[in-house]
């Protein structure tokens, strides 16, 4: 007999390495995540939201961090995306989360990045969203999309 406190069974776990400044590959983790979720028969809404969250997290990691990894966890009741990088960390997370705020250098803006919507887009497409950062250490983000919950 299963206890009601038993953690939801894990259906899938994938770990992706993300290299800094690798603009040729940036975005491919998102397309991989999309394929994995489609293969599991997830709804189009869940697939789209997870892909958007992953794309933005991945782009942030490629553009601003020293590299890191993305972990995709699919459980019975949720999809989780965990992002962890090797720095440099964000001094003011609240400021960085404001729509339109961006520290993107000109070269990134001219490539269509740095609209200042990265963290906003991640938050808007998640049901639960947590970001922690320490300057000199790195940034960790946990974005959760709950299954079977209507999204507005």
């Amino acid at each position: 007999m299963t206890s009601p406190q038993a953690p939801p069974a894990l259906r899938l776990r994938r770990i992706y390495e993300v290299a800094p400044r690798d603009l040729d590959r940036a975005g491919t983790v998102s397309t991989e995540v999309r394929r994995e979720l489609l293969a599991l028969g997830m709804s189009p809404d869940v697939v789209r939201r997870a892909s958007v969250v992953c794309f933005e997290g991945e782009m942030n990691m490629v553009l601003y961090s020293e590299g890191g990894r993305i972990i995709l966890l699919v459980k019975e009741d949720r999809v989780e995306l965990l992002f962890s990088d090797r720095g440099p960390g964000i001094a003011d997370v609240d400021l960085a989360s404001q729509p339109g705020y961006s520290t993107a250098p000109d070269w990134a803006r001219e490539l269509g990045f740095g609209a200042g919507l990265g963290i906003t887009n991640m938050e808007q497409n998640s049901d639960l969203f947590k970001i922690r950062s320490r300057v000199g250490k790195g940034t960790v983000v946990r974005a959760t999309i709950l299954l079977g919950v209507p999204f507005f």
Partner: peptide, 27 residues
């Protein structure tokens, strides 16, 4: 700006008009 596309487009089958030709546009 790609984040704009990700923020504003919700429906499927939309036509994207852009001057950006990076691999990320297609992704």
């Amino acid at each position: 700006l790609l984040s704009d596309v990700l923020a504003m487009v919700q429906e499927e089958g939309v036509l994207l008009i852009t001057g950006m030709t990076t691999p990320q546009v297609v992704r």
